[in-house]
Nucleic acid binder design. Structure first.
Lengths: 155, 155
DNA sequence: GTCAAGTATCTCGATTTCGAGATAATTTCT
DNA sequence: AGAAATTATCTCGAAATCGAGATACTTGAC
């Protein structure tokens, strides 16, 4: 057992509260999405295709924050359920384009509004002005952390 | 494809940047911890026992943000590796107390400082004053979201 | 133009996490 | 005291995720 080095180490504290906040809000998301017999990642794919239209798998992957192998897995499931379809790109033969099927579009159009409502409630502890402040801070934090990752990760 | 309902829906935006920020910072954490041949959850257990001393499994679980079955799984691994030991509580015979073994203590004492350093770098994109602001906002957000969960979850 | 490096997707096995439920002990209510 | 509700831990099978690497294609350097 060890005593705090300086009573409060703000950066480490930030990491802790970030993780806790994410966890709490994510549970709302999970619970909301579970109502529709979907996993959060599956929902993420439907949502991004709904809002952005047809997209390459790699673009979808970047937005749903999972690795490429997991993306394949989730897309497979959605294709099997008839909610998403794959199509080869004409311009770049490596890429596979994803789009909603009519059934997928009907589904997400129906479930997105109640889910959005649940998420608004999830973060409603913060008044709107604080929400806006948090958005600015988290955006800077996320971009900064991502940049520092790039700097090391690359093979 | 659907156009934005009001150009910017701050609460939903908050959820998105929260998830992105968490993901980016968590990657730093993962990479840092991977240096020591540990998973983030295993590290979490060692860290909490290091800072808080002997604790019931349920207290550890609350802090590492995984379900009880996953906690059993991770603790098992740490026990097998000789880093943590289990002990029955005298006062409440349901509870199992966890504590570091000497080897576990030596390990975490050695790896915590470099990990803390990596995490400080991970969030360093935010100047200290913004870090403090973010801590306050995220704490309120996390507590509020958790409270709203309680209100529904309970069986 | 050719070759090296980079990018997109997928496969496969292993790991991690979850969820439901079993068991046992404690606490609360009546 | 006894029943009912709550809490703590664990088991087990299923689901999600990862990581390494294979394959195919494209881009950039020379």
């Amino acid at each position: 057992m060890k005593q705090s080095p300086s009573r409060v180490d703000v950066p480490l504290q930030l990491w802790v509260v970030l993780a806790r906040a994410f966890d709490a809000v994510e549970r709302h998301s999970r619970a909301s999405i579970a109502r529709f017999e979907l996993g959060t990642t599956e929902f993420g794919v439907l949502e991004v295709l709904y809002h952005k239209g047809e997209l390459p798998v790699c673009d979808v992957q970047r937005r749903i924050l999972v690795e490429s192998s997991s993306t394949t897995y989730v897309v497979d499931k959605l294709v099997k359920r008839g909610l998403v379809r794959r199509r080869h790109s004409g311009s770049d033969r490596r890429v596979v384009l994803l789009a909603l099927t009519p059934a997928g579009r009907r589904l997400i159009r129906r479930i997105f509004p109640p889910h959005a409502h649940a998420m608004r409630r999830a973060v409603a502890a913060l008044p709107p002005s604080d929400q806006a402040r948090a958005v600015r801070l988290l955006r800077a934090l996320g971009l900064g952390a991502a940049k520092r990752l790039e700097a090391k990760e690359p093979v």
